[in-house]
Amino acid sequence: MTNNKYKILIADDDNISVILLTKYLKNIPTEFFIARDGVEAIKIFEDNPDIDIILMDLKMPKLNGLEATKKIKSLNPNVKIIAETAFAMVDDEKKALDAGCDAYITKPINAEKLIKIIEEMQNI
């Protein structure tokens, strides 16, 4: 965290998810970055390597969240990434964690659960 403000990248191609996530986190001093696909998420992270947390949708166009996570973790293994998905399959959580995600949450996202995960990661 820099300047008492968290930098959070939301990598999600669904507008409603982006709106909800920013609303859920409105009480945390945050600077948001928005990526609509995995390629854009990597580019934003390369341009802003001090991002604290990434909320990574697993199903996105151009490059999925698992591949984007692997690339971002190769750039900085310490950045915290929370996988999110609306299409939860039995092995999705394992795949996300194996790709380098630090936590996993399913949509519809529960705001309290998300904030708890972030607090555990960052000690807000």
Rank of each mutant, 00 (worst) to 15 (best):
M1H: 09
K5Y: 03
A11D: 02
D12I: 04
D13P: 01
I16K: 03
V18H: 02
T22I: 10
T22K: 15
Y24A: 06
L25A: 01
L25S: 03
P29T: 09
P29V: 12
T30F: 04
T30N: 04
E31A: 13
F32K: 09
F33A: 10
I34N: 12
R36D: 07
G38W: 01
E40W: 03
A41E: 13
I42M: 10
I44L: 15
E46R: 12
E46M: 10
D47W: 01
P49Y: 01
D50H: 08
M56F: 05
D57N: 11
L58N: 08
K59I: 01
K59E: 12
P61Y: 01
K62H: 07
G65S: 05
G65L: 06
L66I: 14
A68T: 02
K70S: 03
K71S: 00
S74F: 01
N76Y: 04
N76L: 12
P77H: 10
P77K: 13
P77L: 07
N78G: 08
N78E: 12
V79T: 07
V79W: 03
I81R: 10
T85Q: 01
F87C: 06
V90I: 12
D92H: 03
E93A: 12
K94C: 03
K95M: 10
K95Q: 09
Y104M: 07
I105K: 09
I105S: 10
P108M: 13
A111H: 13
A111T: 07
K113Q: 14
I115V: 14
I115Y: 13
I118A: 14
E120K: 15
M121I: 15
N123H: 15
N123L: 14
